[in-house]
Design a protein around this nucleic acid. Sequence first.
DNA 1: ATCGCGTGTTTACGTTGTAATCATGCTTGA
DNA 2: TCAAGCATGATTACAACGTAAACACGCGAT
Lengths: 216, 216
Amino acid sequence: MARPSLSREQIVSAAIEVADEGGLDAVTMRLVGQRLNASGMALYRHVANREALIEAMVDAVVGEFAYPEPRPPHWRDALAALANQDWRSYFAHPWFLAATATCRPVLGPKMLAAMEWALASFDGLDVTALEKLHLLSIVTSYGQGLALTWTQPDREGSGQYWREQLRGVGHRRLEAIPAELGDDVELDLDRQFAFGLERVLDGIEMYLTSPPARRP
Amino acid sequence: MARPSLSREQIVSAAIEVADEGGLDAVTMRLVGQRLNASGMALYRHVANREALIEAMVDAVVGEFAYPEPRPPHWRDALAALANQDWRSYFAHPWFLAATATCRPVLGPKMLAAMEWALASFDGLDVTALEKLHLLSIVTSYGQGLALTWTQPDREGSGQYWREQLRGVGHRRLEAIPAELGDDVELDLDRQFAFGLERVLDGIEMYLTSPPARRP
DNA sequence: ATCGCGTGTTTACGTTGTAATCATGCTTGA
DNA sequence: TCAAGCATGATTACAACGTAAACACGCGAT
C-alpha cells in the first residue's frame, strides 16, 4: 500500500498548534491540513470527523505533561501538584475547557492514566473508591470552573476588558467590589487559584480526619 | 417608522428555546428567525451578531431565576442556596457553560445583580471585599467545573455512554473504580454535587473561623 | 506482471454568518 | 392632508465551513 505521509499524531499535534494560535474556531479541516501540506480531506483517513479530532486533541493535552513521579506521599501534596498541573494546562491551551464543554466527555487513555495517578493519592486512607472519586472531582472541578471564565478573555483585550466592565458599570452598582480590583485581575489570578485551592483542600482534610462513622 | 415586530427580548428568548432543544449549534440566525416567523437577517437589527446574541442568552439565563429573598441570614445557607440555584440552571440549559466557555465573560446587569446578592452573604464577617470575591468564586467555580463535564453527554446516550466507557476500558485499567459506578452516574450526580459542596463550604468556614491574624 | 487496497486529491453540495441592497409603511413636519 | 424620511424586515449574494463521492496513484501480495 502507499506508505502514509500523514499520521494521526501528526494531525492532532498540528491541530493543537492551530488552536493555540487561533482558537478552536481556527481548527478547520482545511487549515490543519494546510499546516501539513495536505488537503483538508486527507485528515478523514485518520480521524472520523472534526468532533473526533477535537476529542483527540483533548486527550493529547491531558497527557502532555505527566504528573510528578514519584507521587508526593501525602495526599494533600499530590492533589495540590495535580491541581497546579491542570491549571497550567488550561492556560497553555486556552481552548481546552471550551473543547471539553462542547464535545462529550473524553475518557481516553491519557485521561485514564491521570485518574489512576490521582486516585492513588488516597491510598491508605479510610475512604471508599466512590468517595475517592468524589473528593478528587472536587479539586479538579474547582480548577476547571475557575479557569473556565478566565481562559477566554486573554485572547483579546485581556485586563482592559475587565477594567472597563468593572470600572464603568460595577463601580456604581457594586460598592462591595473595590475599585482597584480591575488593575491586577490577571496577576492575582494565580494567587486567587492558590488561595481557593487551600480552602478546598482544607474542606477535604476536614472530611478525611473526621471519624468515618459520622460521615454522611 | 415601521413599528418593530421583533424585540431583542423576543429574539433572545427564542434563541434560548432553540438552544434548549437542539444545543448551541442549533442557534442559527436563520433558525432563530424562523421561530419568530422572520428571516435570519432580521435579527441583525436588534443584535450585533451571533456572538452578541449568545452573550445576551447567557445574561438572560443568569437572571432567569432570582436568588431567594430574603437572603438566608447565615452565609453558609446563602451560599448553599446560590450554588444549588446555579446547579439547576446549568442543567436546565445544558448549553450555558459551553456558551460561557466560548464567548468572553459576560458581566451584564443580571450577573451584577447576582454578584451583589452573593457578596452580601458575607456582610458582618471580618473579611475584605477581595476575600469575599475569592471565597464566593470558590463555590461558583466548583459548581461550574462539576457541571461542565456532565451537562454535555445527557443530550445523547446519557448513562449508556459512560457505562460503556467505564466498563469496557476502565474495568481493566482502573481497579480503583468500582464496577457498579456506571450504573447510577446521573442519579448520583446531584448527591455528588451536594457532597462536594459541603466539603467546599467546610473549607470556607474553616477560613472564616480562623483568627484573621493567621490568614495568608 | 497484476491485482487489490490504503492513501491523498479533486470536485461538489448543503449550510453557515453576514455584507449589501431593496421594499415597505409608519411617523412626522408642513 | 400629504409628501418626505427613515427604521424595519426581506432578498440576494458570497466566502468559508464540514464532508460525501469519485478519482488517481503506488506499494504489497499473489
